[in-house]
Design a protein around this nucleic acid. Structure first.
Length: 291
DNA sequence: CATCAGGCGAGAC
DNA sequence: GTCTCGCCTGAT
């Protein structure tokens, strides 16, 4: 068990921000109970890099259920704990009310350092899809093609499938995982990696521009998906993925163009604040229209 | 019934 | 190079 105190860190916001599809809330019911919220803590489970980690957070106190060695070697980097997000938020133009509000709303978000292969497949699946179904697809893929493991506490979990496992999958079986027309992209991409046509280790050493070009060689990976992979796996924080949400916000809030030149190297971090804020606004609208 | 969800690939021009 | 269209599937 590792306990830390950290500001600008919210597991809930990281979970909801849709950059990681294998981080899930364990105590959904308790969180919804507003009466017990005064001293409540939230519990989450994460599967990444072949490991399973449970996390508990109460305000700015977070406990990771792992050894100090594992925390230092794996999770500290994974959650980007050495970066000062307060400083990044401080860079925002004080005249930009929208961006300030978005950053304030999602101030606990961090740009995770996730596995390259997992992000490639995850974001191929994300295209023209919603977060709930993306999670379901990935869950099915892991159960069907991942390796079953269990923790010392006896908790069973599935690792993310290897390129080899997915390259060998039939289109029929991939459709059964609810991937739809993305099935052929996943199969082709897995085959490109297994054949060595595109090399993950080489991409890891590339700069942003070169990595983008290489990733775009993969089937199902276009400019938007490649940017997501650069941001969430390669930690290229200059990557600025433009999806339907971001496109809408840029048109509505920045008709003269987003001031990228003010935020060199932090474009992707700001993109996440904007995305998460707009996602939240959409959900609020839906909730209102239902009542 | 149509439209949309963190787009992409293929084909037309 | 830019534009258009079709695409699995579930939710609204």
């Amino acid at each position: 068990m590792v306990n830390i105190t950290k500001d600008y860190f919210s597991v809930r916001q990281i979970c909801e921000s849709g950059q990681c599809f294998r981080l899930e809330r364990l105590d959904e019911a308790a969180v919804d109970d507003k009466e017990s919220n005064e001293r409540h803590s939230e519990r989450y489970a994460l599967t990444a890099f072949g490991r399973y980690l449970e996390i508990e957070q109460k305000q700015n106190e977070i406990s990771f259920q792992c050894t100090p060695e594992e925390f230092e070697q794996v999770w500290e980097e994974y959650f980007d704990l050495k970066e000062d997000y307060g400083r990044i938020i401080g860079l925002i133009d004080s005249a930009d009310a929208y961006l300030l509000e978005a950053a304030s709303y999602g101030s606990g978000i961090r740009i995770l350092c996730q596995d390259l292969w997992e992000m490639i497949i995850s974001f191929i699946i994300s295209s023209q899809n919603n977060i709930k179904r993306i999670r379901k697809c990935i869950d099915l893929l892991c159960k069907k093609y991942g390796e079953e493991k269990q923790t010392e506490a006896g908790k069973h979990y599935y690792t993310f499938p290897t390129p080899k496992a997915l390259a060998a999958a039939s289109l029929e079986d991939l459709y059964a995982c609810n991937l739809g027309y993305r099935s052929k992209y996943v199969q082709k991409t897995a085959q490109s990696i297994v054949s060595g046509e595109v090399k993950l280790d080489v991409i890891r050493k590339m700069d942003y521009k070169a990595a983008m070009a290489e990733l775009c060689k993969l089937s199902g990976v276009g400019y938007k998906v490649a940017n997501c992979i650069c941001l969430f796996a390669l930690h290229k924080t200059e990557a600025f993925p433009v999806d339907t949400h971001i496109d809408k916000v840029l048109r509505e809030q920045y008709p003269q163009g987003f001031p990228f030149e003010k935020y060199r190297g932090y474009e992707g971090t700001l993109q996440q604040y904007i995305f998460y804020y707009d996602l939240g606004n959409c959900e609020t609208r839906e909730a209102r229209s239902q009542s």
